[in-house]
Design a protein around this nucleic acid. Structure first.
Lengths: 252, 252
DNA sequence: TGAGGTTTGGTAGATATTGGTAGTTTTTGC
DNA sequence: GCAAAAACTACCAATATCTACCAAACCTCA
């Protein structure tokens, strides 16, 4: 790839994610870390972006667009690792449903090489691939849920009830032996539709979700095929989930 | 192959891909790398493209009405004025359909005070209000049309056929006495659905669209209630449109 | 047909870019 | 506040690409 093309892709990627680590960028543009470093130095001089320790962020963040993913530098490393590990589970050319949420967004970042067909109700995920034609992205309809950039409402539910997919990549507010729960009542109905549309159900949950229980139950453990989490997940719960026949993948 | 033919093909290829390596181009036009090199040097002198290390990129990436770019400053002033003038036509609490396109995007920017309900298939418009909860935005479903950030396909058409709105704010590639035309075939069907869903149809067209005719006809003049344009619109056409009973508003 | 010019494909040496690696600085975790 | 880990800088060797030039092929027109 040409230097300019690489730099443009870095810029576009940053506009979507607001912040990115060097490793992430080097993977995205398929170049060595050294090269990305040089690109960043150059682009910083041009005022396109600002370098930080370990990565870069956009110089003038589009104010509102990605509030949720932007502020989410919380547990960035874990979520990145979960994203990579989960993307590894996807076979090329599969049809993948991606739930809205910060963790699943990080999965979406690493899906491009698998060239899957993606179906989502998340605007950030949609934006991630709106410029490339390497991946077909289907967006469910719906009303924008303010601040989260999620499409909700009957249009969304309907969209997911009409389709079939190979995998659903989900996230939620908490998981315990009782099942998976989520705090946004509006999302539950859509998530259920996603789950029943997919042959395989993967939940991406960082360790902080373990043992937590939110307002409303989403589904019980039998629904889950695979859980992807990070190294800090409590070992006892992991063991119990495995005994229940759930594949648990510890990222990194 | 003739030199000219070769250069034309290089240009066309670049317009499609934006970047291309020498090897890629030499394969495309079936000539040696040396020849392509010479072509590129010549074409760079003519301002058609810019050489880069290892290849070339187009000098001014094409931006038709629908290619959306955050840094689109092309005729920014006019489009802004049109946006304001068009937003003035909207009554508070109306339901408004917003077509995809750069001009209509500028309308969307000024709609917030009217707190309308917005229905759109444009990702940029959706992003504009994804963070605020002062406006309800309904996004049609659909497949993302690469690079344009527009949702197309049956899901989109279906979404608009099921709804009713007060106003449709449209744009297109050209308008003449024969009617309104557009270059993207895929969008036509959706735009027709938008038009028939709305009680009132407003077209936002900067002066460069006047007298132009694109590939496919979208609708005839009788369909249009109002045209919003800028001061540089050709007076003769404006007069003729008015005689046909269309309200023409000159912004600024 | 053949001289004269032009275009083409290829090649050697010069130049630029890339990926990797020491050694230093910054950040992190306790 | 200290030690370990991560990231940065600066440099080097290995590629990749560029320029400039040459000979062969290809026109053109008398």
């Amino acid at each position: 790839m040409q230097a300019e093309e690489r730099q443009k892709r870095i810029e576009e990627y940053l506009l979507k994610t607001e912040f990115a680590s060097l490793d992430e960028l080097s993977e995205q543009v398929d170049a060595s870390v050294s090269t990305v470093r040089r690109d960043l130095t150059l682009m910083e001089a041009l005022g396109v972006l600002r370098r930080t320790h370990g990565g870069a962020r956009v110089a003038n963040p589009k104010s509102d667009e990605f509030t949720f993913s932007a502020r989410d530098t919380h547990q960035l490393g874990e979520k990145d690792a979960i994203g990579r590990a989960c993307a590894d589970l996807i076979q090329p050319n599969q049809t993948v449903i991606i739930d809205a949420g910060t963790t699943t967004f990080h999965v979406a970042k690493f899906l491009e090489p698998k060239s899957p067909q993606i179906i989502t109700n998340s605007l950030p995920v949609a934006n991630l691939y709106s410029a490339t034609n390497r991946i077909e992205v289907v967006v469910s309809g719906g009303v924008i849920y303010p601040r989260l950039g999620v499409l909700v409402g009957p249009l969304a539910v309907e969209a997911f009830s009409k389709i079939r997919a190979d995998v659903a990549i989900m996230s939620s507010g908490g998981i315990s032996m009782e099942g998976v729960s989520n705090s946004h009542g509006l999302l539950i109905e859509i998530q259920r539709a996603m789950i029943s549309a997919a042959k395989k159900v993967i939940f991406c949950l960082d360790h902080s979700k373990f043992g937590r229980q939110s307002l409303s139950m989403l589904c019980d453990l039998d629904t889950i095929d695979t859980i992807v989490t990070d190294a800090a997940a409590p070992a006892d719960l992991v063991t119990q989930f495995r005994q229940r026949g759930i594949e648990v993948i510890i990222a990194e």
